[in-house]
Every structure is written in structure tokens, then in C-alpha cells.
Simulated assay, not measured.
Amino acid sequence: MIWAQSGPKDIGGTCSSAIARASQLLKCGSPTPEEAWREASREVMQNSGGRSGSNGALMRTAPVGCAYFSVADCGRHAREIAEMTHMDEASSEICALYSRAIMLYTRDKGADGEDEVKKLAAMLHRWKAPGSALNPSGWVVDSMDCALRAIREADGDMKKAIVTAVNYGGDADTIGAITGGLIGARNGIDSIPKEWLAALPKDIRRRINAFADFCANART
């Protein structure tokens, strides 16, 4: 809520609705924040006809993989955080596997991370047929499909993967963020192009370096 009140350039419709409703419930005396968020997310899902599977939760769950130390904890917390705004099974499952893959990559368990990515790719086929046309939409399934395709096309190169993902068009900023979270965890902070880092405000760079230090220390 603090982030939403800070005047960000854009908040997706599902996130915006859930945040606003959770805020109302808390002001009205909801017993706990957890209950307020869950009720708000459920209402947003119902008001949208059961369709709340956009990619907003996926974009923000990358850091979950850096904060927890087991596959089970990481997956559980990723689902909980995703469901604060997106009460949708596809979103929850994809967020859990995405965060788990990031956790394994940042714990120097690359082979296990690759296995999680394979599970993630296979899971998408529950909602999207193999070989379906690329569709850079805001649906969580389409967005993750685009990210995985961009990484494959780039053959492990971070800059190429993100540029490829963004150039698919559509919901380009979120798809680029998802792609960067996954391949960034796999390749490490040193793989970020220096010119991209140089273009960031100093405060943002400071936060990135602090987060990288946190991830490094968490591995030990």
C-alpha cells in the first residue's frame, strides 16, 4: 500500500483494485491484514468473472526466490504473496515455480534451477497448447511463455534475452521484467550490461548492489 501511495507511473488493474479494497477493509476493522488481503483478492476475482490471472503478481515475486532457503518455503510464500492480489490458480502455480527457480539459481544450484524451469515450461501446457503462437499479452501464461522463449532464443545471453522479450511487443515492460528476473538469477549481477547500470539513478544502483549483497550473504 505504501508503494501504491507513492505515485508509481502505473499500477495494473487487478493490483489496483485489490489494493484499494484491502485498504477499505483494513479501515473498516478487518480482523487481520492477512484476512483483508485475502478477502480483497477474492472479491476482485469474483467481480472480474473469475478472471484475475494477469501477470502483476508474477512480476513482483522474483525477490521471493532470494529471501527463502528451501523449495517448499519459497513456493509457499510466493503463492501467498501472489494471492494478495491475484486469486488465480495459474498465477499462483507459475509464481511458485518461477520463484523456486530463482531461489535455486541464486543458491548456486544451477542444475536444479534448470529442472524447475523445465517444470515451469511443462506447466504452461495445462493452459496453452505446445507450439501455440507467441502472444505477448498480460495473461500470466502468455507472459511466462514469452519469457521462456526469449531466453531460449538468446542462448543464455542476458541482454539479448531481455531485448528479445521487450521486442515481442504487447505487455513489454512486464514481460521484460519477468525475463530479466529469471535469466538474471541464472547469470548473476555481473551479467547486467554496464551501460544499463550506468543509466540508472545512483539511489537505484545502490539498492541493486545492496540486494545483490543480501543474496550473496544468504547463500552462506
Rank of each mutant, 00 (worst) to 15 (best):
Met1Pro: 07
Met1Phe: 10
Lys9Gly: 14
Asp10Asn: 12
Ile11Thr: 11
Ile11Met: 09
Gly13Ile: 00
Ser17Tyr: 10
Ile19Asp: 06
Ile19Arg: 08
Ala22Cys: 13
Ala22His: 01
Gln24Leu: 11
Leu25Ala: 04
Leu25Lys: 10
Leu26Phe: 05
Lys27Ile: 08
Cys28Leu: 10
Gly29Glu: 03
Gly29Asp: 02
Gly29Asn: 05
Ser30Trp: 14
Pro31Phe: 13
Thr32Met: 08
Glu34Arg: 14
Glu34Ala: 10
Ala36Lys: 06
Arg38Thr: 05
Glu39Arg: 15
Glu39Tyr: 09
Ala40Met: 02
Ala40Val: 00
Arg42Val: 03
Met45Gly: 09
Met45Arg: 15
Gln46Ala: 10
Gln46Lys: 15
Asn47His: 15
Asn47Ile: 05
Gly49His: 07
Gly49Phe: 11
Gly50Cys: 04
Asn55Arg: 12
Ala57Cys: 11
Met59Arg: 11
Ala62Trp: 07
Ala62Leu: 09
Val64Gln: 04
Val64Gly: 02
Gly65Phe: 10
Cys66Arg: 05
Ala67Gly: 02
Ala67Cys: 13
Phe69Ile: 07
Ala78Phe: 00
Glu80Val: 00
Ile81Cys: 06
Ala82Gln: 04
Glu83Met: 13
Met87Ala: 12
Met87Ile: 03
Asp88Cys: 10
Ser92Gln: 07
Cys95His: 04
Cys95Gln: 03
Cys95Arg: 03
Ala96Ser: 05
Ser99Glu: 07
Arg100Glu: 10
Ala101Gly: 08
Ile102Cys: 08
Met103Arg: 14
Leu104Ala: 04
Leu104Gln: 07
Tyr105Ala: 04
Tyr105Cys: 03
Thr106Lys: 14
Arg107Gln: 12
Ala111Ile: 06
Asp112Phe: 05
Glu114Asn: 09
Asp115Trp: 12
Lys118Ile: 09
Leu120His: 01
Ala121Leu: 09
Ala121Gln: 03
Ala122His: 11
Met123Glu: 12
Arg126Asp: 14
Pro130Met: 07
Pro130Asp: 01
Ser132Asn: 11
Ala133Thr: 08
Asn135Ser: 14
Gly138Val: 11
Trp139Gly: 02
Ser143Cys: 04
Met144Ala: 03
Cys146Trp: 08
Cys146Leu: 10
Ala147Leu: 00
Ala147Trp: 04
Ala147Tyr: 03
Ala150Ile: 03
Ala150Trp: 13
Arg152His: 12
Asp155Gln: 11
Asp157Met: 01
Lys160Asp: 00
Ile162Ala: 05
Val163Gln: 12
Val163Leu: 15
Thr164His: 06
Ala165Gln: 14
Val166Met: 14
Asn167Asp: 15
Tyr168Arg: 08
Gly169Thr: 04
Gly170Thr: 13
Asp171Arg: 07
Ala172Pro: 01
Ala172Cys: 11
Ala172Ser: 11
Thr174Glu: 00
Ile175Thr: 04
Gly176Cys: 09
Gly176Asp: 02
Ala177Val: 06
Gly181Phe: 01
Gly181Val: 00
Gly181Asn: 03
Leu182Phe: 06
Gly184Ile: 02
Gly184Cys: 05
Ala185Gly: 06
Ile189Ala: 10
Asp190Glu: 13
Ser191Phe: 12
Ser191Ala: 14
Glu195Asp: 14
Leu197Gly: 02
Ala199Thr: 02
Leu200Tyr: 15
Lys202Thr: 06
Ile204Gln: 09
Ile204Tyr: 10
Arg205Val: 02
Arg205Ile: 01
Arg206Val: 14
Arg206Cys: 13
Ala210Asn: 09
Ala212Tyr: 11
Ala212Met: 02
Asp213Glu: 13
Asp213Phe: 05
Asp213Lys: 08
Cys215Thr: 08
Arg219Glu: 08
Arg219Val: 05
Arg219Gly: 07
